[in-house]
Simulated scan of single mutants.
Amino acid sequence: MFKELFYFCRDIYRNKKLLIQFSVNDFRSRYAGSLLGIFWAFANPLVTVLTYWFVFDIGLKAPLTDGKYPFILFLMTGIVPWFYFSDVLGSGTNVYREYSYLVKKVVFNIRILPTAKLLSNLYMHGFFVLVALIASMLFGVYPNLHFLQIFYYLFALMCFLTGLTWFTASIQPFVPDVNQFIAIIMQALMWGTPVLWSINQFPNPTIQFILKLNPLFYVVQGYRDAFFGGAWFWQNPTLSIYFWVVTFILLILGSTIFRRLKPHFSDVL
């Protein structure tokens, strides 16, 4: 199992140029057939942010945060990593079916395909991080050294997604219903992750403990700490250790499932 992870890292390094080219082509082809092209990549997330902001802050005036920062900033800094997570999970799960012609080629290393989806969605993620940064500065919240740890939390999220998409992409050719299952889970997970609310809204320590078991809590809270100058990641050693243990288990599980099911991909695709 440890060899599988080592071989994967080796394959990523050896195929880095191919991965970059593949991710660019994947990003371009996603909107190639539409009239407005890449505009739709920006429009949908922006409309989602504005809708949540209008409903919860302007309409309902729901006190979902601790009041330290405007709700629109709190929302943007939490929803940016969520967008990346949901986009990668959705596209990464279908990657072997989408590129079935590559799966059937013996000479092509299909293990790197989920990583290509990680990179192709990274371009939009970088754009929305920049938008959130500009919005923060417009509200008088300027970045400091803490902002540098956003690269750490992005790396952490990419490692977590690597193991997760290995697993979901490997079983999707055999169980197509996994897409519907993920869609249902994502609806519940959206509200179970502190994207729209602060964990301080739940003073009960038991409830806080349960909410922190969600690995995405670590990433979303980390993004906010990076934007707002909160704690460094090493100041939360328990959460950090828990997240990386879960991520490592997921990487081992994903690589094992991929290795066992890979020989049968061409039979079902």
Rank of each mutant, 00 (worst) to 15 (best):
M1P: 07
K3H: 11
Y7K: 14
R10L: 09
I12W: 03
N15S: 13
K17C: 12
I20W: 15
I20F: 08
Q21M: 13
F22A: 00
S23H: 00
V24C: 13
F27G: 03
S29R: 09
R30T: 06
Y31Q: 12
A32C: 03
G33D: 15
I38D: 05
I38H: 05
F39C: 01
A41L: 08
F42Y: 12
A43W: 13
V49T: 04
L50W: 07
Y52M: 07
W53R: 02
V55C: 10
V55S: 07
F56G: 01
D57N: 13
D57H: 15
P63E: 12
D66H: 10
L73V: 03
F74W: 12
T77S: 05
I79F: 05
V80W: 00
F83A: 07
Y84L: 11
S86M: 09
G90T: 15
S91A: 11
N94G: 15
V95M: 00
Y96F: 08
Y96L: 11
Y99V: 02
Y101R: 05
L102D: 02
L102S: 03
V103M: 06
V106L: 03
V107E: 07
F108G: 01
N109H: 04
N109M: 01
I110Q: 00
L113R: 00
P114C: 06
T115Y: 03
T115E: 00
L118H: 08
L119W: 02
L119I: 14
L122Q: 08
Y123T: 14
Y123K: 05
M124I: 10
V129M: 12
V129Q: 15
A132H: 02
S136V: 09
M137K: 10
M137E: 14
G140A: 13
G140R: 10
G140I: 15
Y142F: 14
N144E: 14
H146R: 13
F147N: 09
L154R: 13
L161T: 06
G163E: 00
L164G: 00
W166S: 01
A169E: 09
V175I: 15
D177V: 06
Q180G: 14
F181G: 07
I182V: 04
I185F: 07
M186L: 15
A188S: 15
L196S: 03
W197I: 01
I199Q: 07
I199A: 15
Q201W: 05
F202Y: 12
N204A: 05
I207H: 04
Q208R: 09
K212C: 03
L213T: 14
N214P: 07
L216M: 14
L216W: 04
L216H: 05
F217N: 10
F217G: 12
Y218Q: 02
V219Q: 06
V219D: 03
V220H: 00
Q221R: 12
Q221F: 07
G222M: 01
Y223N: 01
R224H: 10
F228D: 06
F228A: 10
W232R: 05
F233V: 11
F233E: 01
F233I: 06
W234N: 09
Q235D: 13
N236H: 12
L239N: 11
L239K: 07
L239H: 11
F243Q: 09
W244Q: 03
T247G: 00
T247Q: 02
F248I: 04
L250T: 09
L251Y: 06
I257H: 00
F258L: 11
R260V: 11
L261I: 11
L261H: 02
P263T: 06
H264K: 15
H264E: 11
F265W: 05
S266P: 01
D267E: 14
L269D: 05
